[in-house]
């Protein structure tokens, strides 16, 4: 697990600590201890469990989200619920004198408020997710699987493309359709790596991945294939259209002035790109092998 987000939320953790400890101190100051034999241990176990669970939810919410409005709302809602549960739990061990009897009355009030706030937070989260989905538009189609994301480029990996190709093949055999694929390869990438190091190489891969994404349409899908190769799926596209898009990508990358480190000196990478149109007659394995070989041959002929 990755807990790097937790560092951002120091303030929220302080609030959590203050609120919980104030609740505990306040109730113990006003209340009197009940003899332990009065306690209903089933109740205690259940309530302690819920109190603990709300704490765990708060922890995981904070561990998986950056700071922001949505996080604050979720936190606030969970915190109020937590206070309610905590009061309920303490109640099992304390009796309050008549002057502080209101404490028993209000103990369940924070929870509904907390739940309303959390619901609002969840609605905002829904909207936020919608925006993120829009951002992912060109790297994702209908299906989300985080284990297929390529670590370096941020695109999906070849595994995801294979799955999408299978879908596309099933779809077009029923509908007499067609699709095109682009495959591109960074020229002299191994030399670049030797010269500037693997970390710079990864940066270049990431930049090129972003450029490819910018130059394709909504509904197209770009993935990292392997090493310095990328692959783009263009559904319902003839070869001519695919060539046009290939041209756009090539032009865009030719104008990328890659900077390594702090210097202003630019490196202009170039790519080899190959477009091919496919029907529903082949398996996705054959298609990928064929496309990859075409690109290798094209590079060879150009050399």
């Amino acid at each position: 697990m990755n807990f790097s987000y937790l560092k951002m939320h120091t303030k929220l953790f302080v609030i959590l600590f203050l609120v919980s400890s104030t609740t505990v101190l306040f109730t113990f100051y006003h209340g009197q201890n009940k003899p332990l034999s009065y306690a209903d241990w089933y109740d205690v176990a259940g309530e302690a469990g819920i109190t603990l669970m709300t704490l765990i939810w708060i922890f995981f919410t904070l561990a998986s989200r950056p700071s922001g409005k949505v996080t604050n709302m979720l936190f606030g809602g969970l915190l109020l619920t937590h206070v309610s549960m905590l009061l309920d739990l303490i109640d099992e061990f304390l009796t309050y004198p008549a002057s502080s009897a209101w404490l028993t009355t209000i103990e369940s009030i924070p929870a509904p408020f907390g739940m309303v706030i959390m619901s609002v937070g969840l609605y905002w989260w829904h909207q936020e997710q919608h925006v993120i989905n829009q951002q992912l538009r060109k790297t994702e189609r209908y299906y989300r699987e985080h284990s297929y994301v390529d670590f370096v480029s941020g695109l999906y990996s070849a595994e995801y493309m294979k799955m999408q190709l299978q879908h596309e093949l099933n779809y077009i055999t029923g509908n007499q359709g067609t699709f095109s694929l682009l495959m591109l390869d960074i020229c002299q990438f191994s030399k670049f790596n030797h010269r500037f190091g693997a970390v710079q190489g990864d940066n270049l891969l990431r930049e090129i991945a972003q450029l490819v994404q910018m130059n394709i349409r909504n509904g197209d899908l770009a993935c990292r294939f392997a090493s310095d190769r990328f692959i783009v799926l263009l559904p319902q596209t003839q070869l001519q259209g695919a060539n046009t898009i290939a041209n756009h990508i090539q032009t865009a990358i030719a104008h990328l002035a890659h900077k390594s480190g702090e210097t202003t000196k630019a490196i202009y990478p170039s790519i080899a790109i190959c477009a091919k149109q496919y029907g529903g007659l082949h398996s996705y394995q054959d298609i990928l092998a064929d496309l990859s070989l075409s690109l290798t041959q094209q590079k060879r002929n150009a050399a």
Binding site: A158, E159, D185, S190, K191, H194, F225, A226, S227, D228, R229, Q285, L288, A289, S292, L293, T296, R300, A303
Partner: peptide, 30 residues
């Protein structure tokens, strides 16, 4: 690749069956 201006073709035959990450072979081997 490091030492030559043009990498010679290596035609590879493998005694095992096609692995899941076959794209690595396709992209890395000339």
């Amino acid at each position: 690749k490091w030492r030559l201006t043009q990498t010679p073709d290596f035609d590879c035959a493998f005694a095992f069956s096609q692995p899941k990450h076959v794209e690595q072979y396709q992209a890395n081997l000339p």
